[in-house]
Design a protein around this nucleic acid. Structure first.
Length: 818
RNA sequence: GCGGGCGUGGUGGAAACGGUAGACACGCCGGCUUUAGGUGCCGGUGGCGCAAGCCAUGGGGGUUCAAGUCCCUCCGCCCGCACCA
């Protein structure tokens, strides 16, 4: 017997050459043939160092989907780019002096090399990095579009300042009071910053979640983040100073239970209200302490409630009562109006405060017991004759109607979502295309002057302001409106701005007159299948949705394009011994090592085989070897059959081995197809191909005809193609002389899926006692009879009364005895 | 505290519907081939038991002819949000 040696290095290199030479994976923007399209997109990588195993996993998933879509008749857009602006490259520059552009371009070259080495079916003609002027020119253009429509604006605000990165951060980038990247406790600073008005879109961002096929937990996270609550705004008046203080409450039904009123320490009126009262000094002290307090500590829910009275009162609009005003740090300036009515009987926090300061507690809703606080539903009591006795839900509406009639309040909706703070005091990002003119204010750079190029500078270190400020020649400019001397904006944009529209640019990447041609975008968008990590559940995925809606409203996208990603899949991490891989732990396994040793196909197929791709999976060195053995076995069987078995068709008269093999082959087609269709069950799909190959080996030595063996092997290769494209291509080519990627996805023949007989499970009292071969078309009575005849069943029926008989056709019979 | 997810052999994991628990693979055991092998091939492998059989999907309870799957409850782990009025 000849020796057939599986040589993945040679096979992979050879086919990659063909794909590169022929541009096999390029997707044309000529849609005249009317072919169905599919946009399969994996989140673009941040190019730093070199790809890790997580990249290999996510792109293997994406590539499998792309290949499956292609072979089931769709034209697939599967592009690649790089999210190339960002802090790591800049921090590296501060340390080494190497320009971030240079280190980034080196990393990109390595990513590109490895993606090619992995054999990913990417359309390389559409590649770009978000740091290239031909890209960020349009990021700036989009900024100006938003600016011109009032969706980008500057305001002085309390913002999150990361003292390590020396820049502000968006709310979404602060995790447990710490900077997302640095882990440093963020400080609050009052600064003038650029924002995008994402809050205008809160309702649509919430509602449209119902229209997309995303994992439920991601949708839930977005809903929580947006944090919509319905309630009412109620006006409390300070008579002494003649000022109205509106508060937001979700429980206007408890208005009669309000016994005091609380303002946040940041509330601009706190000091003014306390002025001239006996509490002034104490209030001043409390406010100062709160503002300098650790934000994290202050946010701790278990922290004891503290506060100070202001020495003033407000009027409860429903009953005219005078409620003492307190300042307390459990009230947040960022939410609602920065002031609340306090109802200790029916709110946990107000109750804790009332207990600590010995304030009255008044029940206005009946509860199941006398316990306070009670936040559930019940009958309204001790409120007003017109509302007492109503269920609190009904009372809520009645009270709001009353407030509206009296002009003392109205129903209202509040959100947790804040506007998106996009300015960063850092170098390596897209410059904000604004010019500050002493006379004209913030003036947009003219469209024909885009891009505003990022200047080269000497020192990248941020010193409380953007390093761009040191590029004085660059900063100094003239005002586009009045031609007077003016200064450029020196902040750059959050890199999440860059990645909020890249999926649109892929559609039309070389367009020099516009960010994209809406007609082309209309053909590809929305993305049919988006794939990436859950860590972007809120940040990137919320921002990209906002951009899509805003750009659609501005007329730059089709009006029906409201969501960028119709379907989302979030992949799990690859762990090692149950731990994250990290350089610190020294347990990193690099894709290069695996690819060098076993080939890309082994690495890719193993990662997909290890378990469901949305779950975390533990890496196993011996597991990889097993996959390498399987691919080698498939390839050798194919090579051997191609050489040694005559290329005859399957004979009309088939023997038992042929039949067995053909049934298994069609079963495998059916299994892999359904595992791939709406699911991501790659692990079981690969297992099915293994089962098929396991069936070929013994049969080959038996009586199977050459045609049947060749058919089984070429089908196995064809089914494996999305997971191990090179090996599958080569095996298929050896057997058929054809290119598997040009072949349609195999079709399972129903006739071979149905069997003339099946194994009938015979149960007594729900326990399996025996099995019997039964004709597939047997009647219920026949199945029952077969079961009763089975020897082990008879033993268990002996001398007992049959109570009940259950027949499940095609499956089992259960006889219940006593 | 609220919301979501998960818990199956020595290991990773199978089992859309309630209907043969453990597919496929790793590991392990045995055999054959090989000068040798980190190769290839064949067989075995949830636990207890000689066997008939019994036990087994985190624990307990329930519904059902039948439960990994449905319901209740408890335990453990993971993720998100968290003084949001």
């Amino acid at each position: 017997m000849a020796e057939y040696r599986y040589d993945p290095a040679e096979i992979e290199q050879r086919w990659q050459q063909v794909w590169a030479d022929e541009g096999t994976w390029e997707a044309s923007n000529d849609f005249s043939d009317g072919q169905q399209t599919s946009y399969v997109l994996v989140m673009l990588p941040y190019p730093s160092g070199e790809p890790h195993i997580g990249h290999l996993k996510v792109y293997s998933v994406g590539d499998a989907v792309a290949h499956f879509h292609r072979r089931t008749g769709r034209r697939v857009l599967n592009p690649m780019g790089y999210d190339a602006f960002g802090l790591p490259a800049e921090n590296h520059a501060i340390k080494t002096g190497q320009h971030p552009r240079d280190s980034t371009d080196i990393a990109i070259a390595e990513f590109r090399r490895q993606f090619r080495e992995w054999g990913m079916s990417i359309d390389w003609t559409r590649e770009f990095g978000t740091h290239e002027p031909r890209y960020y020119r349009w990021t700036q253009w989009i900024f100006l579009e938003l600016f011109n429509r009032g969706l980008a604006y500057q305001k002085q605000a309390a913002v999150n300042w990361d003292p390590v990165e020396e820049t502000v951060l968006a709310n979404e980038q602060v995790i447990d009071g710490r900077g997302e990247r640095s882990g440093a406790l963020v400080e609050v600073r009052q600064l003038k910053q650029w924002f995008f008005r994402i809050t205008d879109y809160a309702d649509r961002l919430l509602e449209d979640l119902d229209t997309i096929r995303w994992p439920e937990h991601v949708k839930t996270m977005q809903r929580n983040w947006i944090g919509r609550s319905e309630g009412a705004e109620v006006v409390f008046r300070c008579e002494e100073l003649e000022i109205d203080y509106p508060v937001f409450t979700t429980r206007p039904d408890t208005l009669f239970g309000a016994t005091f009123f609380v303002m946040a320490p940041e509330h601009p009126d706190v000091l003014r209200l306390a002025e001239g009262t006996e509490h002034e000094a104490e209030v001043r002290q409390y406010v100062n302490r709160s503002l300098t307090d650790d934000t994290q500590l202050r946010g701790d829910i278990d922290k004891e409630k503290t506060g100070v009275p202001l020495g003033r009162t407000v009027t409860n609009p429903v009953n005219g009562e005078q409620l003492p005003i307190y300042v307390a740090d459990y009230v947040l300036m960022e939410y609602g109006t920065g002031a609340i009515m306090a109802v200790p009987a029916h709110d946990e926090r107000d109750y804790a405060f009332a207990k600590a300061y010995d304030l009255p507690i008044r029940r206005v809703i009946e509860g199941p017991d006398d316990e306070f606080p009670y936040s559930g539903d019940g009958t309204l009591v001790d409120s007003a004759p017109e509302f007492d006795g109503l269920h609190n839900r009904a009372a809520l509406e009645a009270i709001v109607r009353w407030l509206e009639r009296e002009g003392k309040g109205h129903s209202s909706v509040n959100y947790r979502l804040r506007d998106w703070l996009i300015s960063r005091q850092r170098y390596w990002g897209t410059p904000i295309p604004i010019i500050h003119c002493p006379a004209c204010g913030a003036v947009p750079v003219a469209e024909q002057d885009l891009p505003v190029l990022l200047p080269d500078i000497e020192d990248y270190k941020p010193r409380g302001r953007s390093p761009l400020a040191t590029a004085e020649d660059w900063v100094r400019t003239t005002c586009p409106q009045c031609r007077g001397p003016a200064q450029r904006e020196t902040d750059t944009m959050d890199t999440f701005v860059d990645s909020s529209w890249y999926f649109l640019r892929y559609c039309d990447p070389d367009n020099e007159r516009a960010p994209w041609d809406p007609n082309i975008v209309a053909r590809w968008m929305p993305v049919d299948q988006y794939i990436g990590g859950v860590e972007h559940a809120i940040l990137h995925l919320l921002y990209a949705r906002f951009f899509t809606k805003a750009l659609s409203d501005l007329g730059h996208l089709p009006s029906d394009l409201q969501e960028p990603f119709s379907a989302l899949f979030t992949q799990g991490m690859i762990l090692r011994d149950g731990d994250k891989m990290s350089k610190n732990k020294g347990n990193v396994i690099s894709p290069t090592t695996i690819v060098e040793r076993f080939g890309a196909d082994t690495a890719r197929a193993y990662i997909l085989f290890i378990g469901p791709p949305d779950q975390d999976a533990d890496w196993s060195d011996s597991g990889v070897e097993g996959m390498n053995r399987f691919l080698g076995r498939l390839w050798r069987n194919a090579a051997e059959a191609a050489d040694e078995l005559p290329d005859h068709p399957i004979p009309d008269e088939i023997n038992d081995d042929d039949e067995r093999l053909l049934r298994k082959t069609h079963w495998a087609i059916d299994k892999v197809t359904s595992d791939m269709s709406d699911r991501f069950n790659f692990n079981t799909a690969i297992a099915a191909v293994m089962e098929l190959l396991n069936e070929v080996t013994p049969v080959k030595r038996g009586d199977a005809s050459p045609g049947a063996v060749r058919f089984a092997l070429s089908t196995a290769a064809s089914l494996l193609f999305p997971f191990a494209p090179h090996t599958a291509t080569d095996a298929y080519h050896l057997l058929t002389g054809e290119r598997v990627w040009e072949q349609p996805w195999p079709d399972a023949d129903q006739a071979w899926l149905e069997r003339p007989t099946f194994e009938l499970v015979c149960q007594v009292n729900g326990k399996v006692r025996d099995r019997a071969q039964a004709p597939s078309d047997a009647s219920k009575d026949e199945l029952l009879a077969l079961c009763r005849q089975a020897p082990r069943v008879r033993a268990h029926l002996d001398g007992r009364d049959v109570v009940k008989e259950i027949v499940v056709p095609g499956k089992l019979v259960n006889i219940v005895v006593r």
